[in-house]
Design a protein around this nucleic acid. Sequence first.
DNA 1: ACTATTTCGTCATGGCACTTAACAAATTAG
DNA 2: CTAATTTGTTAAGTGCCATGACGAAATAGT
Lengths: 401, 401
Amino acid sequence: MTAPPHDARRGTSGTPLPDTQQGMRRRNLSRVMHAVAAHGPLSRAAVATRIGLTRAAVSTLVDELIRSGLLDELGPERPGNKVGRPGSALAVSGSGPVGIGAEVGVDHLSVCAVDLRGEVRARAVRQGDNRGRAPEPVLEELGALLRQVSDEARRAGLRPAGLAIAVPGLVARGTETVVRAPNLDWQDVDFGALLPGGLPLTVDNEANFGALAELWLGDGVPHDFLHVSAEIGIGAALVVDGRLLRGTRGFAGELGHVPVWPDGPACPCGGRGCLEQYAGEEAVLRAARLDPGADRVGLLAERAEQGDEDVRRALRDAGAALGIALTGAVNLLDPRSVVLGGALSRLAPWLLPSLEGELRRRTAGTTCAVAVSGLGSDGPLLGAAHSVVRAVLDDPAGAAA
Amino acid sequence: MTAPPHDARRGTSGTPLPDTQQGMRRRNLSRVMHAVAAHGPLSRAAVATRIGLTRAAVSTLVDELIRSGLLDELGPERPGNKVGRPGSALAVSGSGPVGIGAEVGVDHLSVCAVDLRGEVRARAVRQGDNRGRAPEPVLEELGALLRQVSDEARRAGLRPAGLAIAVPGLVARGTETVVRAPNLDWQDVDFGALLPGGLPLTVDNEANFGALAELWLGDGVPHDFLHVSAEIGIGAALVVDGRLLRGTRGFAGELGHVPVWPDGPACPCGGRGCLEQYAGEEAVLRAARLDPGADRVGLLAERAEQGDEDVRRALRDAGAALGIALTGAVNLLDPRSVVLGGALSRLAPWLLPSLEGELRRRTAGTTCAVAVSGLGSDGPLLGAAHSVVRAVLDDPAGAAA
DNA sequence: ACTATTTCGTCATGGCACTTAACAAATTAG
DNA sequence: CTAATTTGTTAAGTGCCATGACGAAATAGT
């Protein structure tokens, strides 16, 4: 229904969008919101110097944003400045719009509401294996959770401004249709048709939302990195210049099928020796001589911690394969860092030594830091909710409603 | 001195540039120029509908551009429209600014001047091996060629608006310093200091300029592709959404050191089994049992054409290795196509079958077209000159002088 | 305590960029 | 030859930000 927020502003053809005064106004409203959201409570004067407009101009912008309920005036502020009249502190409203984020995982459904300040204001989770279930009943349950969270938010005086859903599968660029979700065994599921409408809807890959969460919430992470996450497949998401690189069809980031040993075992994808054959969940479990059961990642972590040599070797080998695949990616993309997220962050202690070893040996000089995500398994959910929040910050006028 | 033109418009930090009315004017001037440059002679009314402004607004913009000498009024035009007053055709000026492009190759120096219409208006080449020569005498010769071309352009009433130089090596992002050019055996050469000033200078990798040439001049190539070129090393340049992906330090595109067979022969880069060990010029010559001499690419093409089995096998194997490395890249980036440029375009007939074979087998479904560049060896030079032209189109107000 | 200084937010004025609306000019259709 | 259509220009209008001046609120100095 609505275009993905993060590619906005780019015209469809070579000619960008026309530039009118209203567009200028909208962009400046957005700049004010971003400045206040990113750099804590700020006075009008501080905003003005920060975004390069005059105090007078910022005053009118702020007035409009306060009237729309997107900014709050907190009252006089004790400023860092020593002398002069204190400014009136402005903060993004904690009682205006909220972004609704949802995640359809293989073993859970979760929904949350995040306000403009980034606080989680409502939350609902339903555990339960969704593998092999038909889309309709799953999305019906998801709808119930969504209603629950929306109602809770509304009771708190908040207004849902949009809905973003993270799914473990490929989503065709610009649509709400899941083309293929191997772990759920879903194909061509149109979320727009199966969920009650009413809110602007965005559906995207969980790896993408996880990377965006890292970009927006991770600390110290620059806006140029490669985010690797593994659930059952291995997905990567590339953030370049603070923007997600989606690829022509939206299928970018298929790290799992990068060839590692080109003559290696055949892969369902048609190739041979894909990374997934060495570092995918199934492959690691097999190499560790463990049976696939529930909470397999937890099991691996537990055994590794206990010192199980088979498990440790399996993880070491997986890390080496990851390191080789990442060497290619780092050579191609020159990111500032690589971030391990999702299940990988939990297994990082045993993956990292061999991973970093391969990477460093093969990219001498081109030092690329490897970091572990601090967001844990909440990344995709938070990224989804925050994507709605960002959409509001990116166009406050359009989202004021 | 000036920032690379293609990353412009992006603020230094999270907060973008402020939006003032003057900025709006500049952007709209740019839109007019782009519309006229891209879509042939156009009337004011046609420009207006195309860029979404009113005829009145476009009229004042066009007046200003004509006064600056960037647009020419050709006179009444026979329009496609059946009825109504004919418009007055506008075209970008053929007598205004020109972009000066230069290329420092291993066996030649070349310089050209391209006007806003994209026509090459002056040109100078000096053949001769530059391998191992010190930077100073080479750049002195280049300076002589530059003067020659600039003078010729000036005699034709043209005004050099900027200088862009393509070099076979790595250039640190945003600088004019060649960090490392292995084939010339140069390190940390500051072009800005060694060339006479006076013009805004940009120095960049030849692969990058080759890709930009493909983007701007290639026909049918979309603005999402992976451009592969091989001189002695193998470089790639990624164009995403019409923008060059440079990487954090400007070192993106090092396809030559993507691991292909991780246990393969050691590579000077410190890794093992890098693509360059299989498809690099030296490796191919060795496999073909040919001695390195002058015009080695030409020799390979000639022998392959004559049916030399050793050469053909060597090229077949190189193509397969390329296909494997590209499989990784395609999986990661999901480009619309892969374009073979530079020396590869000449050898394409013998590389393509195995290359496409590997690529197609390993990326079933994810069809990614492989194309051969039509620009030949002129790509980098033309890309450099056109980058200056684009800078003028991108900010006509700033470049009017 | 009182004044000078500094900084903040607002207001009135002005300039700039685009839109709207009207019009003359140039061409085709009937 | 008139009506219709399209172009380019002009004049008035609106929106948005800059400029400069002002009162308000706090600190520093005497």
